[in-house]
Amino acid sequence: MASQRRKRGQNRVVRYLILGSWALFCLVPVIWFLSIGLRPRTEIITPQPIYVPTLSLDAWNMIWSDWPMGSYLRNSVLAIVGSVAIDLVLAIPAAYSLSRYTYRGREDIGFYILSTRMMAPAIVAIPIFFLFRNMGLLDTIWALMLIYAAINLSVVTWIIRSYMMDIPQELEDAARTDGASDLRILWEIIIPAVLPGIITAAVIAMIFAINEFLFTLLIASTKNAYTMSVALANFTGGSDGVIYNAIALVAFLAFVPIFVVVVAIQKHLSRGLTMGAVKG
């Protein structure tokens, strides 16, 4: 008994050693990067790395005065909000159809929607570039909105579909015997019941949209459409090359709201990330 207890104690030491090391591996680079964002540019690339920098808000002043940071922020927010709105308008009826009706071809349609998630952005990058060029949409947030919506539509549809499948049929039947139409049932019963799923889907779509890089790089060429994710890559200047403290600061600027929102939907995260395949 005593040896078993000792063994369990050892197990706990091993467990916390493993989890603790990974926690350090996650956090140390982040804290160091934050210190990069809060130091003057002269202390970043030095013959000897500086681990304890002098605190400075140089980068903060620089991102607002040297670049149109306000435009980048506005472009990011508008393109993301717009794309999520498009996704929800298209995905909610689609998910309703895929989860609450049986009809011929349903499985294939659902799978087709899912399979668009598997497409590498680079495969369609060139045709999409030509398409937007012909439509005169290059370097506009409309193009970003449309493409982000397309990237996320499969994810959003499948997450909402998964939540809708959990609603008991009786709930719907009761309303139907009261004479409610299908659309009213969707609006008054189904949507309120799957609100957590809709929010989860919106948050996941938001994260993917913020992260999007390749299409934005091709579509945006000026401050008209640069988002934060791509604007970062242009933070270079002078002989010193990349301006790391500005990049680090913008990274944290984008991180904070995402972190808050994700912690708020933590319980649904695993289900969202697997497009509804895992009910955590």
């Binding site: 926690a23 996650c26 992260n211 994710s229 970062l232 990349v242 990274a251 984008a254 991180f255 972190f259």
Partner: peptide, 17 residues
Amino acid sequence: IIFLVPMLFMPSAVAFL
């Protein structure tokens, strides 16, 4: 929550890191 942190940075920023 701790392990989530790296995932919530923009990949472009992580690449610079």
